[in-house]
């Protein structure tokens, strides 16, 4: 009986540790407050898609840049529904991505005119 109790206890501890590790490293845990529900995951995925290309922005075509700018604009409204802290952080981050794409697009348009 004692052995069974010990085994059950060990299983509980291990599954707890695995859950904690998964929450921490899968990106659905507390850091960044991205949340874990399907809706939250949807906007965070969209956010990541939009903002992951900033470093390549000078290599993107004008169409690609325009598409990213449109996606950022579309996402902006949805971020307005987040709670205050998340809204503050992600709105600023989104604005930075948007402005970077606009800057790159502007540079390309000017370059073409020359």
């Amino acid at each position: 009986m004692k052995k069974i109790m010990m085994a059950a206890f060990a299983v509980l501890i291990l599954s707890g540790a695995a859950f904690a590790a998964d929450a921490r490293f899968s990106g659905t845990g507390k850091p960044g407050g991205a949340g874990s529900g399907p809706e939250e995951r949807e906007w965070i995925n969209e956010f990541n898609d939009v903002c992951s290309a900033t470093t390549a922005s000078m290599a993107l075509s004008k169409d690609e840049l325009n598409s990213h700018i449109r996606s950022a604009d579309a996402l902006k409204g949805r971020l307005g529904c987040l709670e205050d802290s998340a809204k503050k952080v992600y709105s600023r981050r989104l604005r930075m991505c948007h402005d970077m794409y606009e800057f790159a697009l502007d540079a390309k348009v000017k370059e073409d005119k020359k």
Partner: peptide
Amino acid sequence: FINGVSARRPDFPIP
């Protein structure tokens, strides 16, 4: 990079 915070960025061309 911080999991759950940073977006995965592809390799980028460096000006």
